[in-house]
Amino acid sequence: MSCWQTIQDYGLRSIGIGERLLPKGDFTLCEHFTLIGSGMIWNVYFGVLAMTTGFFLATALALGKASPNRWLRKPAEWFIFVFRGSPLFIQFFFAYFFFLSLKKSYPMFDAFTSAWLGALIVLFLNTAAYSGEIFYGALRSIPKGDIEAADAYGLSGWARFRRIVWPTMLRLAWPAYTNEAIFLFHATTLVFFSAFPAWQQRGDALYYASYFADKTFNPFVPYPILAFYFILLTLLIVWGFGLVNTRLNRHLPAETRGKMRFRLNLAR
C-alpha cells in the first residue's frame, strides 16, 4: 500500500473520516506519521478553541482580581486559585464524573461527557485561570505615567480601558502569554488519558502514539514522531504570537522594541 493511500485512509481518521479499523500490525513509518498527525487535529482543536474563548474570560478575571470591589475580587481570586492550585489531570477526572452524574438526572448533559465539549470546557476554564493570573500581573505593572497621561487627556472609563490599559496589559503580558499558549497545547494531550473516552478510537496525537507503542512495544518510533509534531506546533505558536507581539509594540522606536525574548519558562 502506497503512502499516499495511507494518508487518504487515515489522514482524517481522528475525526471519523476514512478507514474505520486502525492498522493492526506491521506498522510502516508512513502509518505512524499519518495517524499521529491525524491525531494532532484534536490537539489543535482543543488548543485553539480553549485559547480564544479563554482569552476573554482571562481578561474578565484579571480585571475582577484587580477590582477594588470585594464582590468581584473574591470570586476571581478563588476561581484562579482553584484552577491553578489543582492538577489539570484531576480536574478532567472530576469534570467527567461530574458531567456523568448530571447526565443521569438531566439527559441534555449528554454531550458534556464526550471529550469534544466536556474536555474543552475544562481546558477553557483552566487556561482562563492561568492567563487571568498573567494578565493580572501585567495589569499591576502598567506604568503609572501611562494612566496619568490618559487621565490628563480626559480619557476615562471604557475609553481609557480600551485605548490605554488593555493594550498595555497585553503588551506586558504577551511573552508570558505565549508561554501559556505552548503549555495549553501540551496539556491537550492529557484529554484522552484522563477519564474522557476516545469514542471509536478517535483520539489525539498522544493517543495514537501510545497505541503504536503498546502494539509494537517499541517507544522509540512513535514518541519521537509525536515530539516532531509538537516541536513544529510550538514553533508555529511562537511565530504567530511573535507577529502579534510586533503589532502590539509597533508604536515603540525600533531599537527599544527589540526582539521578543523567549525565556521559555518551562513551568507555568
Binding site: F185, H186, L190, L206, A209, P219, Y223, A227, I231
Partner: peptide, 9 residues
C-alpha cells in the same frame, strides 16, 4: 516543545 506526559509514557 514536547508535552511532559509524552516523556512520561
Amino acid at each position: 516543545g514536547v508535552p511532559d506526559i509524552a516523556f512520561f509514557l
